[in-house]
């Protein structure tokens, strides 16, 4: 159904996006566990914080929502560093931009692959994370559901910062700084939304949860154009 060759002149933005996701998936699998990087970082981060905080169950349970968001925000920023930089370096981005009038499909594919390759594995282990940090299993699943609602916003924030640093040829440290304004609202409302569920035991709704989804939608509209502009500038 989709043309697996992005050099085809008939490539539509959608098929380009799908091709990018498939290619990134192949690269991640064949490069010996590229998809595992973010998850592994997240696991190490959780282990370190558990050691740092000590084994007290109540203490860990109180910190669990914040640590879940913090670990995934850092892991996604780390995963974002490589998102565009390789395409920029090896010239494939130049080829893609030469043959497509808009980089929209490319950006859509890249953000999707960041979500699938870095955020989704963390989302899958989120319930386990919450349980080992002392949250009741039933509540942990609800908490993980809330967590997934905020992940697209985190990916978009990390992704646009990655596009900027890749365009500039700068390092990842600047990227962490650039994604901060987009990340901080997600952290504030995300931690609040999970706390509502796991500590107050309320249903998966409430204003914080809705604001989290609003952030997804706002970022989806605002941030991708910045990424496209940054990459275009980088190619000039």
């Amino acid at each position: 159904m989709f043309v697996l060759d992005s050099r085809d002149p008939n490539t539509t933005p959608l098929s380009l996006a799908v091709n990018i996701v498939l290619r990134d998936g192949r690269v991640a699998i064949r490069s010996g566990g590229g998809w595992f990087n973010a998850l592994f970082f997240f696991a190490i981060f959780s282990m370190f914080t558990a050691f740092a905080l000590g084994p007290g169950r109540e203490q860990l349970a109180a910190a669990a929502p914040a640590l879940l968001w913090l670990g995934s925000a850092l892991a996604l920023n780390l995963a974002g560093v490589e998102l565009f930089a390789n395409d920029m370096k090896d010239g494939s981005l130049r080829v893609i931009s030469a043959e497509n009038s808009s980089l929209g499909g490319y950006i859509a594919g890249k953000f999707t692959s960041l979500f699938l390759m870095a955020a989704a594995p963390i989302a899958l282990v989120a319930p386990i994370f919450l349980v080992v940090f002392g949250i009741e299993p039933a509540l942990a699943f609800k908490g993980a559901a809330v967590f997934i609602a905020g992940l697209p916003a985190l990916c978009l924030g990390a992704g646009v910062a990655a596009a900027l640093t890749a365009g500039m040829g700068a390092n990842g440290l600047l990227g962490a700084c650039l994604s901060a304004p987009a990340t901080i609202p997600v952290l504030i409302f995300g931690v609040g939304a999970i706390q509502n569920v796991v500590q107050l035991g309320s249903a998966v709704d409430g204003s914080e949860f809705l604001i989290l989804i609003a952030l997804d939608l706002i970022y989806l509209v605002i941030l991708p154009p910045f990424a496209i502009i940054a990459l275009r500038y980088g190619l000039e």
Binding site: V160, L164, G167, L178, P181, A182, L223, A230, Y233
Partner: peptide, 12 residues
């Protein structure tokens, strides 16, 4: 160019 993009992104 990059400063412009960053400035607008940070305006959030």
């Amino acid at each position: 160019k990059f400063a412009r993009v960053t400035a607008l992104l940070g305006f959030v």
